[in-house]
Design a protein around this nucleic acid. Structure first.
Length: 827
RNA sequence: GCGAGGAUGGCGGAAUUGGCAGACGCGCUGGAUUUAGGAUCCAGUCCCGUAAGGGAUGGGGGUUCAACUCCCCCUCCUCGCACCA
């Protein structure tokens, strides 16, 4: 890497350490337990896995900047931090290095905490939360039991996503394009009995709630909408010809019902196993199902693959026209969506079309495009658009749009179907077959079945005395007899604990609430305390959590509100997704040991340089590729600030100057100060830290260029600059502040000043003059000049006049304080 | 395929929402200071042109006195979902 040719000229490490200790000792950033104007700044907590890189630092710097700024504005800020410390990497590292996951985790926490302190992030450490401690995870268990009581936690046998590498199941949210989100192995299918949280009960609420999240990025909202995947249609009852048994199918296109030429079942649908009974095709069908289900879901379900199926030997009857259609089993039909069964309309659905072509199933056109006629034997693809219904009995001639409504009503009236809404969102599978997590507080008794652990027996502590936590395809805790064997709380007989642990996304679904009451031993949090601080005013974290964590934590908040434990339904008003930090084009990663590390970087340049570099390089939501060049500019800036104060420390003052006595230069400087001050406030409030810093750099350039360094306006400007600088380069600002005012309290306990509203505009203004939209001249006039006079001066301008000689002026436009445009007549 | 976002100097990025395109910073060029400097200070730096001037915000059209900004078409990039019936 290219080494920059620059270093700090002041003893940054000493200065920084001094003030970090001072802030801690004097509890400058302790949370006010009884806030008057509350402000909750939350950064997503960290999974402590080794060292901390600039990507992490960016996240925490943004939060810290806003925390310090709001505190100075007089808010009572809650700015907590904690450790998302359960999870697989701890075990994997432990297996690799032969140390206990707990030791590895706490070592990582120590390291991260040191780094955060090096950066000078102002957390209230009295509210620290560590999810792998029983004081925290007992409330995971308690919450699980409340969910269970409400019927929101349930156990079922299902095909689940199984990662053969991590040896555990995964939630749908943890499967990325058919691969494990963590290790990238191809996810397999396994039939297991597992615990689920009934998030689908909240699908509609979670969807509707998105509209109220006005200050969330549009992209995140769209992702969540797509993830929930609401689709409304109708469930139509086809019948099995032989027995008259109902075969319900879900469709959004009832207008194409007359075009159904076959039906298809998912290979893993319950009916698939027995449908072929008595047809003589049992063996082939069974063989087909077995073969298809062996394939990993990615291979089976990836779009664009050739579809495969088999005829079952049975027929169904179409309720609208009594037509007899063959029933297939097809690999592209999903058991988990709708009814696990579809009506297939090859003429108007591309998948059905491809399948029909392959198996020579008839194609029947029932929707014709406006003004054209489509013929089945000429079709190269399905016609999936709107059109006019045809071959559809009573409904011929209706548009497909009308048809959808009319046919739906018709089916409902005849009792042949009912309106239905389907969601893509599935219930949240939370069982994990690994060691380093929250034990699920459930007991399996031979006599009583599944029995919850009584609340007074919580926590169910994770046994520490485990040496063999290597995954073997079954739960690690099942091999720990002193944990696994227990007695039934109901009958006292022999029983077993559930040997699985919870998905760690449970931990992060309510940590924002625990911070409001982190030491409560009676409840996860007291309602009054949570209500006092919520909703989160600024939530800052990576966009990669858009459809995982950010859905789950909305879900938990709603459930807790419904339990009466909270008064709000949405946890967070404003979400800021921060871009990744990459190095040489690859995202920084602790586990892959790829990155610029906070510790060594700070040794070299100091914390303020790191913070300014991260904030100045790009707007927070943009990803950024780190190079050491980014630091050069901000280090130079810090040095320039330092040097200027060193040279003029005696003139620094905080007395508002008297404008009546200003020289012209002083007036100009004073205006520039107020302009800068205003911009720093609006930009910081709008999370545009890069331009807030740029404004300060500009102003510093003005200060350097200012001649009369003895002027009280100059000294006052230096004093003001310290406040502006404080949220961005807190150590330097604090140091200089105390050099000027040795007896003062911390600058962060000062009130952020307001700017002088009467002085944000210069006395004169430069008005560009255009002729026919092209810039031709500029005129300088006093601010108070009236419109007519400005026009007059513009027209009289020598350069302008030159462009008007053989032309006829048609009109003249003046935009207040902006420009003059003279429009000439076209020849 | 569907959805979202984006494309501005050599580079990171600005542009009060329709009003001087390129703030600020990096880099580069020249100068000053210095034993020297990769430190510091000053000046310059979108392109063509000696200049007057002309051309520039991915490409093409349009609206407007005026377009990076609004509308239509196209190209490319990033992200998300992806056989969801």
């Amino acid at each position: 890497m290219k080494e920059p040719r620059i270093g700090l000229i002041y003893p940054a490490r000493e200065v920084e350490q001094h003030w970090q200790k001072y802030w801690q000792k004097n509890k400058v950033f302790r949370t006010n337990p009884n806030p008057k104007r509350k402000y909750y700044v939350l950064v997503m907590f960290i999974y402590p896995s080794g060292d901390m890189h600039m990507g992490h630092a960016r996240n925490y710097t943004i939060g810290d900047c806003i925390c310090r700024f709001r505190k100075m504005q007089g808010y009572d800020v809650l700015h907590p931090f904690g450790w998302d410390s359960f999870g697989l990497p701890a075990e994997n590292a432990a297996i690799k290095h032969d140390i206990h996951p707990a030791k590895w985790t706490f070592d990582s926490i120590d390291l991260c905490k040191r780094n955060l302190n090096l950066l000078g992030i102002a957390y209230d450490w009295d509210r620290e939360v560590t999810t792998c401690k029983p004081e925290y995870y007992r409330w995971n268990q308690w919450l699980f039991l409340q969910f269970y009581k409400k019927g929101l936690a349930y156990r079922k046998e299902a095909f689940v996503n199984w990662c053969p590498c991590c040896q555990t199941v995964l939630a749908n949210e943890q499967v990325v394009e058919g691969h494990c989100y963590r290790c990238n192995a191809v996810v397999e299918r396994k039939k297991l009995t597992q615990w689920f949280l009934r998030i689908t009960d909240y699908a509609q609420e979670l969807l509707d709630g998105i509209d109220g999240l006005v200050s969330w990025p549009e992209s995140v909202k769209t992702m969540q909408r797509n993830w929930i995947g609401r689709s409304s249609g109708i469930e139509v009852k086809f019948k099995l010809e032989e027995t008259g048994e109902d075969l319900p199918v879900f469709t959004t296109r009832p207008d194409t019902l007359w075009g159904v030429t076959f039906m298809a079942l998912a290979p893993d649908a319950p009916l698939a196993e027995r449908i072929a009974q008595g047809t003589g095709r049992e063996k082939q069908v069974k063989e087909f199902i077995g073969r298809v289900l062996m394939k990993p879901e990615v291979e089976r379900v990836a779009a664009g693959l050739e579809k495969e199926g088999i005829f079952t030997g049975k027929y169904a009857v179409n309720p609208v026209n009594q037509e007899r259609v063959p029933i297939y089993i097809a690999d592209f039909v999903l058991a988990s969506y709708g009814t696990g069964m579809i009506m297939a309309v090859p003429a108007h659905d591309q998948r059905d079309f491809e399948f029909a072509k392959k198996y020579e199933i008839p194609i029947k056109v029932v929707i014709q495009p406006e003004g054209k006629t489509v013929r089945p034997d000429e079709m190269k693809a399905a016609f999936i658009h709107e059109g006019v219904m045809t071959n559809s009995g009573l409904f011929d001639g209706k548009s497909s749009k009308q048809g959808i409504e009319l046919v739906t009503r018709f089916l409902e009236e005849k009792g042949l179907g009912k309106k239905k809404v389907n969601y893509r969102l599935k219930d949240w599978l939370i069982s994990r077959q690994r060691y380093w997590g929250t034990p699920i507080p459930m007991i399996q008794c031979d006599k009583c079945g599944v029995v919850p652990v009584p609340e007074e027996n919580l926590p169910v502590t994770l046994p520490e005395n485990v040496h063999d936590y290597k995954p073997k395809g079954k739960s690690v805790l099942a091999n720990v007899p002193e944990f696994y064997n227990t007695t039934c709380p109901r009958c006292g007989g022999k029983a077993f604990r559930d040997p699985d642990t919870m998905d760690t996304f449970v931990d992060s679904s309510w940590y924002h609430l625990r911070y409001t009451d982190p030491k409560n031993t009676q409840l996860p949090f007291a309602k009054e305390k949570a209500d006092m601080w919520l909703p989160i005013d600024e939530y800052i974290g990576g966009i990669e959590h858009a459809t995982g964590h950010l859905v789950f934590f909305r879900f938990f908040t709603r459930v807790l509100a419904d339990m009466g434990m909270l008064s709000i339904k949405e946890p967070c008003k404003v979400l800021h997704t921060q871009g990744m930090v990459s190095l040489d084009g690859k995202t920084m990663s602790s586990s892959k040991k790829h990155g610029v590390w906070v510790g060594p970087f700070i040794k070299k340049y100091g914390a303020d340089a790191a913070r300014l570099g991260l904030l100045f390089a790009a707007p927070p939501e943009k990803s950024l590729d780190w190079t050491e060049d980014l630091v050069t500019g901000v280090v130079r800036f810090l040095n320039r600030v330092w040097r200027l104060f060193e040279a003029h420390i005696k003139v620094v003052n905080f007395r508002a100057p008297e404008p009546g006595k200003f020289s012209r230069d002083e007036h100009r400087l004073y205006v520039r100060l107020n302009q800068t001050h205003k911009k720093v406030i609006t930009d910081t409030e709008g999370f545009q830290f890069n331009t807030a810093i740029a404004a300060q750099m500009e102003f510093l350039n003005d200060l350097y260029a200012f001649k009369d360094k003895k002027s009280p306006v100059f000294g006052f400007s230096l004093g003001k600059l310290l406040y502006l600088l404080a949220p961005f380069a807190p150590h330097l600002a604090e140091e200089l502040w105390h050099r000027v005012r040795p007896d003062a309290q911390s600058i962060f306990q000062e009130r952020f000043p307001d700017y002088d509203r009467g002085f944000t505009n210069p006395e004169t203004m430069t008005v560009p003059v255009m002729v026919d939209g092209k810039l031709r001249s500029r005129i300088v006039v006093p601010r108070t000049t009236k419109e007519d006079e400005i026009k007059h001066i513009a027209l009289a301008d020598r350069k302008v006049a030159g462009y008007l000689t053989d032309k006829q002026m048609e009109r003249i436009i003046y935009v207040k304080d902006r420009l003059v445009n003279i429009v000439t007549a076209k020849k």
